[in-house]
Design a binder for these strands. Structure first.
Lengths: 257, 257
DNA sequence: CGTTATCTTGACGTACATCAAATGTCGTGG
DNA sequence: CCACGACATTTGATGTACGTCAAGATAACG
């Protein structure tokens, strides 16, 4: 059988439980997520239009701020922290479809129901926008809509890459791909760090890669013994041989000895 | 090891090989793909703007009209036939990320290179647009861009559903999901047919579902012996018990006997 | 420092892959 | 119309990568 993660059923975070609204004066003007967000499509002078709609919220770890199947009322922009996006099967099997970091725009999905749930992995900050009201702003700024289309296209590319991973890569290739993706900086122009922190648990990684925690753990320790990576602690990763990891992740033939 | 399909390396279709330009007067005006395409975002009176850019092409079966890794020069709109969209690993493992049918818009991916290849499964008709020139038309019609965003969002939802399938569903659940998806009509309002034709081979199905042809075949014959489907011929499918197929596809507990 | 959750490691099981061969299916030409 | 070849599909026997079950070992925390 397929693995069933002991993932708890989602508990919806409401403003009363786990989501605190922060009173921030002129939030967009000095938002450090702006350069990596769709918001940068707006000029400085138009920023107040956005700021007027934005509710700045803090989501506590473990709290769900988007629930699969519910009617989507808001758009979100993640300004800090990391969230997991996932879908569940009725028996509890979970597939994490992505992790949302700073700059990630959520809630594009049209239609009657959210296609996935979003849950704070660690403390998360989001800007929340009413769908209907943001819709109006969008109509006034075609550049914003164009930017949104660009991010959607990028996400589509990432989704296709993930399908290749889930459908055709081995556990080793999946873990290598994952680690390299985690090492990718927010802005592509920046150099990727050789050492970084994993905010998610092994269970999250497993549910993202279509594996079990045991397989993830075993694969990581094997990469460690082969000196491709180091693990100062379970959540700290050091990439020791990026070239071989890249070749592994890309699905190149394993070199024989 | 993961399965390696004997998928031939892509051979790029050029106008000289496998892609025939058709001289069609006023192509958009009586295009039967329009109601299900992004083109319907334009009003009748503006349609000539689009028609002026559209090249109507016929792609022969097996010909590639988008090549992964190449610089994207065009957008495509599929007006007839079916194409497979896929990614390859260097050793030939293939993941089909989707099948493009009538109304499917291709080439959204921004960036330097196509994220996937597209190949005609059977004879395919496409409208081809120069990227730069369509870009200009898009600027004049925000409704068109909005519609594009809508389709991108829909594709994203489909991609997430497919990740759930690839990461967490059993072979049985995958095949059931696939058959039900194939039975879905082009316009959601239409009733789904109980009997339909599969334009793709078992190899295509396997590469789409992250399985091997043997597993696909075995799973289909098992569904047949269990009277959930009938297969008058390998490519003809009849859904005999849609309810149980839906429950299987949705990942509900298998009923015990 | 217990207590508890997370991670690692080992022994074993299984769903699906692989290898191999039989059986359609279909277009082509005699 | 039928024989033939090429290829797609089905079916069977066997292998294995990864899942499951079960302890331990670490790390996190009040």
């Amino acid at each position: 059988m397929r693995p069933i993660s002991p993932a708890p059923r989602p508990q919806l975070g409401t403003p009363a439980t786990g989501m605190a609204a922060l009173a921030v004066p002129d939030p967009c003007a000095h938002c450090d997520a702006r350069p990596v967000s769709v918001c940068s499509a707006l000029e400085e002078k138009d920023l107040h239009r956005l700021a007027a709609l934005a509710e700045v919220l803090e989501v506590a770890p473990g709290k769900t701020f988007i629930a699969e199947g519910e009617k989507p009322e808001h758009f979100f922009n993640v300004t800090g922290g990391t969230a997991r996006l996932y879908k569940l099967l009725p028996d509890g099997r979970r597939q994490i479809t992505g992790f949302a970091r700073q700059g990630h725009f959520l809630g594009l999905a049209v239609g009657e129901a959210n296609a996935f749930s979003a849950e704070a992995l660690e403390k998360v900050w989001v800007c929340r926008f009413s769908r209907t009201r943001l819709r109006q702003v969008l109509d006034d700024f075609p550049a914003f809509e164009r930017r949104l289309l660009g991010t959607a296209a990028n996400e589509l590319v990432a989704a296709q890459e993930q399908m290749l991973l889930l459908g055709r890569k081995t556990a080793r290739e999946r873990v290598a791909s994952f680690l390299l993706a985690q090492a990718r900086p927010l802005r592509p122009c920046d150099a990727p760090p050789g050492r970084f922190h994993l905010p998610m648990t092994r269970t999250d990684i497993a549910d993202y890669l279509g594996l079990t925690i045991e397989t993830v753990s075993r694969t990581m320790t094997r990469l460690k013994t082969e000196k491709l990576i180091a693990l100062p602690s379970p959540a700290e990763v050091v990439l020791l041989d990026r070239a071989r990891l890249e070749s592994l992740a890309g699905g190149f033939e394993e070199e024989r000895f």
